[in-house]
Each structure stands twice: as structure tokens, then as C-alpha cells.
Design a protein around this nucleic acid. Structure first.
Lengths: 242, 242
DNA sequence: CTTTGTGAATTGGTTCACAGCT
DNA sequence: AGCTGTGAACCAATTCACAAAG
């Protein structure tokens, strides 16, 4: 490849968006790199990084090419440079303010997860329809009524919404978030949300994941019985379907 | 296609495993079909079903071909037949016993989710290392110490394990589950588990999902700025990478 | 010698489009 | 007419393999 020395070195090159799968892997590389950096490594090769995640070195290089041409032949990548570049590409080189609707156990788990603030996600608003919960405080945040949702989103300038309500309520909650100006939604409710394409959507459907697991286990049983059936790479799974 | 009348009608045809994505969609079709059935529909076309999930009719037919040739030209699919066939293909036409390690808020959310028992997943064992929790009961189940894990898995005949512990503990917990004879693991810890290929693995990585969302939102902002960049179908997202 | 970046080849998944059944 | 099942075409993603750089 032509690399005019210093010019292209920071160019996040292409105009076609990376695939979901690549983006998911970038998150994993990032975490792994942060761990390597903590251990004092200043340089890392695609081979080592891939080993940590169960991915081939070629795949790692292709993925990392998305964030720019940062590798040095014969040496590898600078962990620090890579971390910044990935964070930039993922859009997490800044703070994201998040509104959380449905303050059940799942929400509490999210509120307590230290990984989110570390990566720049800050939960700034809580909403729940249960009168017994409204007015209570969780982790320093007051729980507001759904009627207040537009006002709360505006006041906190939240850009992302998390839907953690029962299936029946999810579609209307999501629509309320969109109406309030939210730009992206992380949906945990077991329904397929239908939203305007201008808002981004990521769904985490626990029932789907468990059923996937049941299928895989059942299939691997069958395999021992029937010796002749093709197997896909059973590499670790990261979820994602908007 | 040659369909020797009655013979092939129930044949789940092929030997090559369906893709992860197809399996995820089967779960979604199933949920949608159960809803349609509840509404009294006895027959459904690929078009309608696809509409409910934002998928093309051709995609629906390809996916449903995995579970057998159950459609009637000019009519559609019998909802009841399809439901059974999908459940069979997914391996959820029976009960799956699940052991849950790490009884925090996430575990409590799972314990309370009514969708799991409905689909045949039964949580039968709880394990946590916190001395304050050991011996307590949650939703009728006693919390056991990690030392008891092998005994508890054996006694309850659990086949699936859920890892809901902090990152540092996840790999060793997973190994303990494997040693105890578990066949599949659903991992919520933010690490890539490395396990023997004989055990199936599905990972639900919340940080990865949120970062994906940040990326999508950021990308859709850029899009308005730069008119000429390709966009992938932003259809709803279902997570999954083992 | 090690390791990157990337075309080329390959594999896999989705969409098209239509023959054939009801 | 309406709708399925499926080859064929298309498009996307992964793997290969190698020239070029340190």
C-alpha cells in the first residue's frame, strides 16, 4: 500500500461504514488494549491481540485498518495510539448522557456497573411509572414519572435512552424517548421496536440469547451422534441486532 | 423443488447448521407467532410475519425452510405447526435447567423475568461468593457457596450456566461450570471467555452494546454532514457472539 | 526475521425472481 | 389470484498470501 509517510498515518481512511461485527470487535480490542496498557505494554502485534480474543491476526489487521494505518511493520501497534484511535472511531472520546426508563433490577445492575462511566457513559435520568418508585432516589438520582420524560430528557440533555420496561410498554416508551429528542436507544424489552431510521437502535434480547444457547448445545449433541455435519467456528459470541 | 407429497412435509431438511443470525430470527418469529396465535390467527404468510419484525418476506421463507417445508402455497403457514417446529429446531421443546452464578441485580432481573420459564428455561441453582449472601433465599432458591458448585450442579442436573460475576472472576467461574459438567454458558461478564469447543458459549456484553450504539449515533450524525456515504440496513439488532 | 496493509480468493448470507402449488 | 420454496445473482465478510517496511 502507498503510505506517503506522515500524511496518511492518522487518516481514518474509508467512507463506507464498518460492519456491526467489526464495530463489536473494536470494542473488544479496546478493552483488551486497556488491559495490556495497564500491564505496561507499549506495543502489541495483531497476533497477540487476536489470541486474546480468539480472532485471527488477519481479521485484527483488517479491523484495525478501520481506525487508521497505525501499525509499524516489524513492530506492531502502539497501545496508546490504538486506544485513542478506537475510542475516536467508536465515538466514545467524549461523554454520552443516558436516560434510563424502567427502574427494575436490570436498571439497578446498569447503574452499578463501573464499566459505563469508565467508557464515558453517564446515566443522568431515571424514569419509572410505578407510583411507589417515583420520587425515590437510586444511586443519587431521583426517579421521575413518565409524564416528566420530555422535561427530564431536555433538562439533562440526555442523548441516549435505555428501555428496560416490560414488553407491553416498550414501544410507547421508545416513541416517547424519540419525541423527547433522544438519538439512540438500547432496548432490553423482548419486542422488536419499530422506530424512524433517524434514531439508532441496539437490541439486547435475553430470551433470544438463551434460545440461541439452547440451540447450540442441542446442535453440539447431535454432532456426536451424526459424524458428518458442518460446523461453524464456535468463537465467543457478542450480541447485536438493532 | 421435488416434494414427494407427505414424506418431506416434516423433514427439517439440511445437514449444514443455520447461521447465528437465522437462529436469532427464529426466536423472534416464534415470539411473534405466539402473539398471532393468542389473537386467534391460525394461518400466517411470510409477508405478514416479516412485516412484524422488519424483515423481507424472502428472508422469512428462507429462515422458515430451516425448520421444514410447512408452508402451503396460496395460504401461508399454520401458526400452530410453525410454533412447534421452531421450538423443536431451537431445542426448546423441552425443559432446560440453568445454574446462575453471581447473584447481583442482573441475576435478580433474570430470576424475575417471566419469559424464561414460559420458554422452558428453569433456573434451578444459585451460587455466589459473598458470605453475606450464602444461605439466603431468592425467589425460593438458596444461594450456595462456590465450593458447592459441583455438588449443586450435579444435584440439580443443570445443563446451562449463567455467568453474572465481575470480570476478574468470570474465567474461573466458567471453568468451574465446565468442570461440573455444564454444556453451555451465557456470559454477562465483560471478558472474552476461552473455553473448550465442546461447551457452547453465548456472550452478552453490555459495554459492547452501548459502544455500538454510540458508534451508530455518531455515524448517523456524520451522515447528515457528508451526503455521500453508504448506509447499511439499520434494522433492529439482536446481539450474539460467543 | 517480524509484522503490517491489502488485493485476490473464498466463504457465507441476503435478495431476486419465478416455477409450481392451491 | 395469492403464496411458497428455491435456484441464481448479488453483496458482504473473512481468510489467504505476499510485497513492502522496520
Amino acid at each position: 500500500m502507498k503510505r506517503p509517510k506522515a500524511i496518511a498515518r492518522v487518516t481514518p481512511n474509508d467512507d463506507t461504514l464498518p460492519s456491526r461485527a467489526s464495530v463489536a470487535r473494536l470494542s473488544l480490542y479496546l478493552r483488551s488494549l486497556e488491559e495490556f496498557a495497564r500491564q505496561g505494554r507499549v506495543t502489541i502485534s495483531s497476533g497477540r491481540l487476536g489470541e486474546a480474543l480468539g480472532v485471527t491476526d488477519a481479521q485484527v489487521r483488517k479491523d484495525l485498518a478501520i481506525v487508521g494505518s497505525l501499525g509499524q511493520p516489524g513492530v506492531g501497534y502502539s497501545t496508546g495510539e490504538l486506544i485513542s484511535a478506537i475510542r475516536h472511531t467508536l465515538g466514545i472520546d467524549r461523554e454520552w448522557r443516558v436516560a434510563l426508563v424502567g427502574v427494575g433490577n436490570l436498571a439497578r445492575a446498569l447503574l452499578r456497573y463501573r464499566g459505563f462511566p469508565q467508557q464515558g457513559f453517564r446515566i443522568v435520568a431515571l424514569v419509572d411509572s410505578d407510583p411507589a418508585k417515583i420520587g425515590q432516589r437510586v444511586e443519587g438520582l431521583e426517579i421521575h414519572s413518565p409524564a416528566m420524560l420530555p422535561a427530564v430528557v431536555a433538562a439533562t440533555r440526555a442523548e441516549l435512552g435505555v428501555v428496560a420496561v416490560p414488553a407491553e410498554a416498550a414501544q410507547s416508551v421508545a416513541e416517547a424517548l424519540v419525541a423527547a429528542g433522544i438519538r439512540g436507544i438500547l432496548n432490553f424489552a423482548p419486542v422488536v421496536l419499530r422506530l424512524p431510521p433517524s434514531v439508532s437502535l441496539v437490541a439486547v434480547d435475553l430470551a433470544v440469547q438463551l434460545e440461541q444457547l439452547a440451540f447450540l448445545v442441542q446442535a453440539s449433541c447431535r454432532e456426536v451422534a451424526r459424524p458428518g455435519s458442518r460446523r461453524r467456528d464456535p468463537g465467543p459470541t457478542a450480541p447485536a441486532v438493532p
